[in-house]
Amino acid sequence: MISVKGLYHSYSHDEKYAVKDANFEISKGEVFGFLGPSGAGKSTTQGVMTGLLQLQKGNVTVAGYDVKRASRTMFNKIGVSFEQSNVYGKLTALENLEFYRKLFDVSTRDPKELLEIVGLDHVATQRVSEFSKGMKHRLTFIRSMLNNPEMWFLDEPTTGLDPAIASVIKEIVKGEKKRGTTVFLTTHNMFVADELCDRVAFIIDGEIKLIDSPRNLKLQYGERLVEVEYRDNGDLKKETLSFIDEKDKHHLNDIVNTGKVEMMHTKEATLEEIFIKVTGKGLQ
């Protein structure tokens, strides 16, 4: 669905690249996470793929269209949700969606239905300038769904949303994935990436450092520990034991056999920990 080969982009049109030699492919129906701190080159890469920034060097194919010579009809297959809400403040939520849906040449979704999905149906006829930041963000998000996109670009889709709404957004993404939509998810939120993505790419200073599935990364970079809480002569004890160390494995076995285990869970490395390990920098 997406193929990026040798992508470079410089805002100053010199050797100061915001994105350097980016290479990756995304299959149809895959949710691909693009993880990196602010200024890493995530939005620039997405900007080039969506045609908002001119392709300077490299080859980019999106939904079968070569971005360098892409026809406007490409956007019938693409949906883009922006990190910064960008809706007409003077229009109502419904007017905003009605306007944008008319710009597509394909069948579109009912704006009222979309508003209902993200809990904005009760303010459908209210001016968007009166909306909170989170409401505007939800409106920007559902606008990107109007044309039932085959290729969906999501830039920080849950940023600034309360946990309940963020959960709704994540469920929508999962639902679209089930329908076969390909998703390019740009985020610095590792939990969102971990929950939604089939594969993630770590980008830092414009360079992709690593691409793999969250599971493989955890297996590769995690320490394979288990944290156990158990009762020993009435006292609550807590230990962290290794799955690899023979002594720890026997000790864990003994604890389990006594039947006094109160809580036990594997302690995997988080994506953020792996990111720091790989890149030497944090995600914030």
Binding site: G51, R72, F75, Y100, L103, D105, T140
Partner: peptide, 14 residues
């Protein structure tokens, strides 16, 4: 400033 120009730019409209 509103960013609506970007939203328009990712539609098939010219």
């Amino acid at each position: 400033d509103e960013g609506t120009i970007k939203a328009f730019a990712v539609t098939p409209a010219k």
